[in-house]
Computed example of a mutant assay.
Amino acid sequence: MFLYDVVTPAEVEEMFSLPEGSVRRDLRRSKFRQSEIRKSGATWLITLREAKRVYSEYEDKIQVKKDWDWVKNYVDSELNPVLEEEIADFLDGAPFDRIYELYWDGIEGIGIEDEGEYLSFVEWFYRFKESAEEWKDRL
């Protein structure tokens, strides 16, 4: 994540023509994924992809490679302490490396040869987690 990939609530409101205060309201209502926001002093910082997801139904896709080292390095580059904790909770005692295997399976499942477009790791993880929770609820 780069410095220019984060925005403030005021920037989000301007970007999406939202009424003043609506992003702070949505922060209080937990509309944002906790791993995609953080407070710096008195200012909230939101990843641009998260702002797009919440306010324009953006689907974060990236060019991926069907290469184990690429997958591991890419996933590692997306991790932050909050996301790591969510993943550990989701894995419920399974080795953390299992998350790399699961994302690899997702990439492999789309049938790409060398490179193709697939969900970013963060987008994939939250969707995968949600579908796993729905499946558990049905049992």
Rank of each mutant, 00 (worst) to 15 (best):
F32L: 02
G41V: 06
V6K: 03
W104G: 03
R98W: 07
K129E: 10
S40N: 09
W44P: 04
L48M: 04
E85A: 15
V12N: 04
P95M: 13
F90G: 03
P95V: 15
I110H: 02
D114R: 10
S35T: 03
T47M: 04
I107S: 00
P95Y: 12
E101W: 06
D89R: 14
R53H: 05
A94W: 14
K52W: 08
E130I: 06
G41H: 05
E115A: 12
E20A: 05
R98L: 15
L18E: 08
D5K: 05
F96K: 05
L91C: 07
E117N: 10
E115N: 10
F16R: 00
E20F: 03
W135G: 03
K129M: 10
E101G: 10
V54Y: 01
E59G: 09
V122I: 14
W70V: 03
W70H: 06
G93N: 08
E115C: 12
R25I: 01
R138T: 09
S30L: 05
W104L: 02
E14Q: 13
D92K: 14
L48T: 05
M15G: 01
D89G: 15
K136V: 14
S40M: 09
E113W: 13
F16Q: 02
K31A: 02
E13M: 07
E36Q: 13
S131R: 14
G111H: 01
A10S: 08
E86I: 08
L3W: 08
E108N: 12
R38V: 00
A42M: 05
V7E: 08
E36P: 00
S56H: 11
Y58H: 14
P95K: 11
I99Q: 09
A94S: 14
R29Q: 14
S17H: 15
D92P: 10
R127H: 11
D76K: 15
E130A: 12
W135K: 13
E86F: 06
A88H: 07
L102H: 07
I87T: 11
D114L: 07
K72R: 15
F16K: 02
N80V: 13
Y58G: 05
D76I: 06
Q34A: 11
V12T: 09
E14I: 05
E86M: 12
V6E: 00
K31F: 03
F125V: 05
R25P: 03
D60I: 04
R28H: 02
V82F: 11
W44Q: 04
D69Y: 06
P95G: 13
D89P: 09
E59P: 04
A42Q: 07
I107N: 02
